[in-house]
Write a protein that binds this DNA or RNA. Structure first.
Lengths: 245, 245
DNA sequence: TTGCTCCTCACGTCACGTGAGGTGGC
DNA sequence: TTGCTCCTCACGTCACGTGAGGTGGC
């Protein structure tokens, strides 16, 4: 044993892991202390410390412990590829997290606005976000978030206010059995189109949205929409777009 | 049983969880299907779907399943506080992740530059980052990252090149037993100060850095520094700053 | 002698995953 | 009759955490 060797406790303190973790790595065959004292105390030499750094680095790169063993023996581990993969995954996770935080902030604002008794709609909002995650790609969601963020508070308020007029009017039309491609529906649809100008909506996303709300109609609770109204309005908007004169 | 009720499989598909998860929530007393068929099949009604949304929302807010049960009964759950806390934590985690990704990218660039044989230094870089996480606050690390990112590639290259002159010169002075506050050390220190202008370095951070490298001198391997040289240079820089004439 | 560090089992954690063996529904 | 969905155990996972009971070192 050399003087610069570390005991488990020392190594743990200095490198920021627990003693139990070091024992665990040893049991998995990843890191054996290269020496022992008479009493059985582990002694970690400089090379062991390097091995620990490698283990922790690979862990940081997203590898499971059982996959790290083989790499510790390799003389030319595929570091660049491992790093590239991890960077890609981490950045995707980062965008996911940003989308999540953006939603949490919106819900938080609403929570403060409506008070604790009216929490039902908030849960629906969060459920809807979870569904978006499943139905839309991360890129589509990020686009939606950026568009939403670019709106600004007063524009959001105006949209919300206009909706309170638009939806009942559209609903009445539908109830009366009106043609979604007819002139009255068309007028409302044009207002809607104007209102949501700049929001992402290609054909694939539109269809995904409809399918999503068809699978989980309860997500529409509290929005003023019903599934039937959503479909009616979609047809009206499509008709208005196809015939912009 | 009503027609709009869901079986486990249906509920699982529509809400994006596994059947096993639903069973699990039931065993924990969080979500009981409000009905059963003759054959024992679970039937989930609309209220059950709402409860599931709540469970998943609370999970999204960072709560453990065992802490969710009490909240499901509450008529005015502390949503605003839960959301505020989760937002704060998520944002901190986000910054941590951004710092991590920035480091991974730097290491990746080096990995491509040096080739797979010279991987030792890369592991040391990653170990150093882990240590920074322990010794410095998240805010200090974010400051360091932003300063680093604002440098630009050519300035980084120039700093690197200057270091290759500065460090050996400083090392020679130290070996000769020169005074770190003396005129020769001072000249080199001034060049160093000029080189790192704009980088965050208050007194507390300086001391933390020294303590960190004292605790893990192996982190200096491959940087051209030794612990002694680091301390010598720090004294020289301090002397030059105190006496800027 | 006392407190601190170390040792080796070995069960616990958390939120489910994964069969195993069997039964209902279309 | 066949395939699909459902049922209830019950052990497994992953990276350790957490005592339990005992021994060395200063």
């Amino acid at each position: 044993m050399k003087d610069e060797d570390y005991t488990v406790g020392e190594l743990a303190r200095r490198s920021g892991v627990t003693v139990r973790a070091l024992h665990h790595y040893e049991k998995l065959g990843l890191l054996r202390a290269s020496g022992r004292s008479d009493a059985g105390y582990r002694h970690y030499a400089a090379a062991d410390v390097q091995t620990l750094h490698r283990i922790l680095a690979y862990q940081q790169m997203g590898l499971a412990l059982k996959d790290i063993g083989p790499l510790l023996g390799a003389d030319a581990p595929p570091l660049a590829e491992l790093l590239a993969r991890q960077i890609e995954q981490s950045e995707a996770e980062l965008r996911r997290q940003q989308n999540l935080v953006a939603m949490l902030k919106r819900v938080h604002e609403r929570a403060i606005a409506v008070g604790p008794e009216l929490s039902d709609h908030l849960f629906t909002l969060m459920a809807a976000r979870r569904s978006y995650e499943r139905w839309f790609s991360e890129e589509e969601i990020t686009r939606m978030r950026l568009a939403q963020e670019s709106l600004g508070a007063e524009r959001v308020a105006r949209i919300r206010a206009e909706y309170d007029h638009l939806l009942p009017a559209m609903h009445e039309l539908m109830e009366r059995g009106a043609d979604p491609a007819g002139p009255q529906a068309r007028a409302l649809a044009l207002r809607f189109i104007e209102l949501t100008r700049g929001m992402p909506d290609d054909d694939a996303m539109r269809r995904k949205g409809l399918a999503m709300f068809a699978a989980q109609p309860e997500l529409l609770k509290g929005t003023g929409f019903t599934l039937a109204l959503l479909k009616f309005m979609d047809r009206a908007v499509q008709a208005a777009k196809e015939n912009p004169a």
